[in-house]
Write a protein that binds this DNA or RNA. Sequence first.
DNA 1: TGCTTATTTGCAAGTCATGCGAACAATGCT
DNA 2: AGCATTGTTCGCATGACTTGCAAATAAGCA
Lengths: 164, 164
Amino acid sequence: MHSPAIVADKYREQGRRLTPQRKLLFALMHGNETHPTAEGLFAVASKRMPGISLRTVYQTLDELSAMGEIQLMHCDGEAVRFDSNVEEHHHAVCAETGELFDVYVDNINSLRAQLPAGFEVENVSIVFHGRLAEKKSKSPARPQTVRAKTTKRAPRRTSRGSNK
Amino acid sequence: MHSPAIVADKYREQGRRLTPQRKLLFALMHGNETHPTAEGLFAVASKRMPGISLRTVYQTLDELSAMGEIQLMHCDGEAVRFDSNVEEHHHAVCAETGELFDVYVDNINSLRAQLPAGFEVENVSIVFHGRLAEKKSKSPARPQTVRAKTTKRAPRRTSRGSNK
DNA sequence: TGCTTATTTGCAAGTCATGCGAACAATGCT
DNA sequence: AGCATTGTTCGCATGACTTGCAAATAAGCA
Ligand SMILES: [Mn+2]
Ligand SMILES: [Mn+2]
Ligand SMILES: [Zn+2]
Ligand SMILES: [Zn+2]
């Protein structure tokens, strides 16, 4: 997502108005790597602007996504998460905490896949499911080859996690 | 998913009862490659057994998933889809029709990904978004290297498709 | 400052899914 | 076969998340 100033310009160019709500949300989403849900962002926004409406948060996030400033992510059965990173990237989900991390994969097109005949791929999304080792040594992300346990995928329970 | 007979045995072993509803649903899910939603399966089941309850369909699908006979799939913002294929595999979604196809990828572990430090991958799910070329020549699926257009991902609209 | 019109907001409504318990029926026993 | 036991089904209420709607509000501009 572009800087709040630039997003503001885009808004003006489109005849949209710059409200305090929007300005706040631009600021909160800019550089936000937490992939928040609407409710999550609403909670944060409410601290700085008590009374802001959840409806407005949804609306603004939808605008930003329509403008290509953010992306929507449907993760499992949970609420939609909003991603301020619109670069081509993928995700890692911690089964422990539910945290979502950005993951860059450089050699996607080396995937050998048996696609249906005539299927034209437009884009690929990869989700790495796993967990963060306890001791969080703050060494930077390092490139690594995936060593997923290629055992039969474990049956997942049906619950839709609630994030209250 | 195992054959209805085998699933029936597993049910008996667990002290569960074999009801006509369950038998029908076993049959409808066995070998089913359409990745139906609960409502979708309910619609089909209702033809053969008018009066069957949607609640029962949900319940039976949950049982089967808890027993590892089927998998749940959360696809975009749509309803959960149930997958009778529990082998390690991935999916291709047609943006046109919403159809979901199974895709086998043999070299997942050759992916070069920059995962968060300390992240231990348990499994990877890949979704190929794209579309089926109109003329459906019925040539079989053939292995192919992915040539996804690596342009910035297109902004997706926010709607949750309704599948009435 | 005042007008026009985009926004915000609260609440209703919608969709998908789960909780609940009374009515029902598969199974096992006599 | 008849009966008791207890797992199931099913309808309805409830819940989580999201969108529709329109009245009240407030940007942007003359
Ligand atoms: Mn959702
Ligand atoms: Mn869902
Ligand atoms: Zn991301
Ligand atoms: Zn599948």
